[in-house]
Design a protein around this nucleic acid. Structure first.
Length: 408
RNA sequence: GUGGCCGUAGCUCAGUUAGGUAGAGCCCCUGGUUGUGGUCCAGGCUGUCGCGGGUUCAAAUCCCGUCGGUCACCCCA
């Protein structure tokens, strides 16, 4: 076989997929508890949505998009992130009022793959639209934190910063550009080309870390309202017991962020990609997409990276396994299987004639905690049930099998 | 886009230094145990040695090219 999954894509097979299912269910649960409804947007959009939404100056738009022309001559792009499409949908459906939505699905970026960085990767996220209050920022940070904490990323840390808004950011950027220009010779090549278009990117540069260590930071230039907003976000986080630290160097790679920016980091991760999620406020995004102004804040979490970091064992996906002693009992056994399934019990059986030994092996491999044996006892209205962990076996009435399995 | 490492059975790998009939463990299947798994024992299935070319009587092994994987830089979730 010489057909393979495309470069930078992965098949998620059992048993690893069991952990995926578990983690996505946990995500749905947390999103619902915080009042976020489901939203589904297309996996591809007009290229314009990302070019204008994410920002022409970003690396993502310049180099990493899967852009193609369809048969009608339209330029389309596989979504490299989730927010732009959600805001587009919000605007298209009226663009007013409050909307709290959660999404999950694959994203696509053309990059050289490595650990924790794939060409098709999976993100979950929420967007809280139409609300400018710092309560929204704090809530979004909290829902992500609660979810990641449950899933278990070792050394989880929340890092936050404020990037300012349309009033104070221009003043800051002018200051920063001047400061960088004075030290142009000390900067690396990448930073020199970034300083005009997107000077904050230089703060993030690992090569220039030394040089920019005492560069002016966005927080030092915040206007009064941005200061108050940032303070309110931090207060609510403290009150709700979300541990965080401030990092004046934290910037984000997407142009749409204003005010609050944050990241979730697995500090014990060996992987170079230790940021498992991030987000922030993007009050200018709706306008950038050509809609009426609307505030918003959101987050995105990389499920692939969270899984890389968490040590979660794949859960068992069965409550029991039905073993058929002789093929003459298959009709009876399959009737029992069907009945148990309708009663809400997760059970399975082999589909063709196999030895008991093989059927027990199958039950074991599938992680079933117990086995139900359909044999001669059936004629007396009974089946044998065996706990595979302890080896204990007893005989129970057919009608009580479901209860017996669920009590394991 | 730049760089390091690696391509041999479904998986993990040995064999490459010094060319000589393709190996091990795991997994899977069958049996030992005609109604009992996970342990043990016996047997069985599985290969264009990534691909193409070159050198040679002879290439998994040497040479050239190419493709793929992986990790890191960069960027980001």
């Amino acid at each position: 076989m010489n057909l393979r999954a495309p470069k930078g894509t992965d098949d998620i097979l059992p048993p690893a997929s069991r952990t995926w299912r578990q983690i996505l269910r946990a995500w749905e649960d947390w999103a619902e508890r915080f009042g976020y409804d489901l939203i589904q947007t297309p996996v591809f959009e007009q290229t314009e949505v990302f070019a204008r939404g994410v920002g022409e100056s970003t690396e993502v738009v310049q180099k990493q998009m899967y852009t193609f022309e369809d048969r009608g001559g339209r330029s389309l792009t596989l979504r490299p992130e989730g927010t732009a499409g959600v805001v587009r949908a919000y605007l298209e459906s009226g663009g007013s009022g409050e909307m709290k939505v959660a999404y999950s699905g694959p994203m696509f970026r053309y990059e050289r793959p490595q650990a924790g960085r794939r060409r098709q990767f999976y993100q979950v996220g929420v967007e809280y639209l139409g609300v400018a209050s710092p309560e929204a920022d704090a809530e979004v940070i909290e829902v992500g934190y609660r979810f990641i904490a449950e899933v278990g990323v070792p050394g989880l840390a929340v890092v936050i910063n404020s990037l300012g808004d349309g009033e104070c950011r221009p003043r800051y950027l002018a200051e920063l550009r001047g400061w960088l220009a004075d030290r142009r010779d000390e900067l690396c090549e990448d930073s020199r080309s970034a300083m005009e278009l997107n000077p904050m990117r230089v703060l993030d540069c690992k090569v220039c870390r030394e040089v920019v260590s005492d560069a002016p930071a966005p927080v030092d230039f915040l206007c009064t309202s941005c200061q108050a907003h940032f303070a309110a976000v931090k207060n609510r986080l403290r009150q709700n017991g979300i541990p965080f630290r401030e990092d004046p160097r934290l910037v984000r790679g997407l142009d749409y962020y204003t005010r609050t920016a944050f990241e979730y980091i697995g500090t014990e991760l060996d992987a170079a990609q230790n940021a498992v999620g991030g987000g922030g406020r993007y009050d200018g995004l709706a306008e950038a997409l050509g809609g009426s102004p609307a505030p918003g804040v959101g987050l995105a979490l990389g499920i692939d990276r969270i899984l890389l970091a968490s040590k979660a064992e794949p859960p068992s996906t069965l409550d029991g396994f039905v073993v058929i002693v002789d093929e003459v009992r298959r009709d009876q056994a399959m009737g029992l299987v069907s009945g148990l399934r309708q009663a809400g019990v997760r059970v399975d059986a082999v589909a063709d004639a196999r030895s008991m030994k093989a059927q027990f092996r199958a039950a074991d491999r599938r992680g079933a905690p117990a086995v139900v044996i359909v044999g001669d006892e059936w004629d007396g209205g009974m089946v044998a049930v065996k706990d595979l962990a302890t080896g204990d076996q007893e005989t129970v009435e057919i009608g009580k099998v479901a209860a017996w399995l669920m009590s394991r």
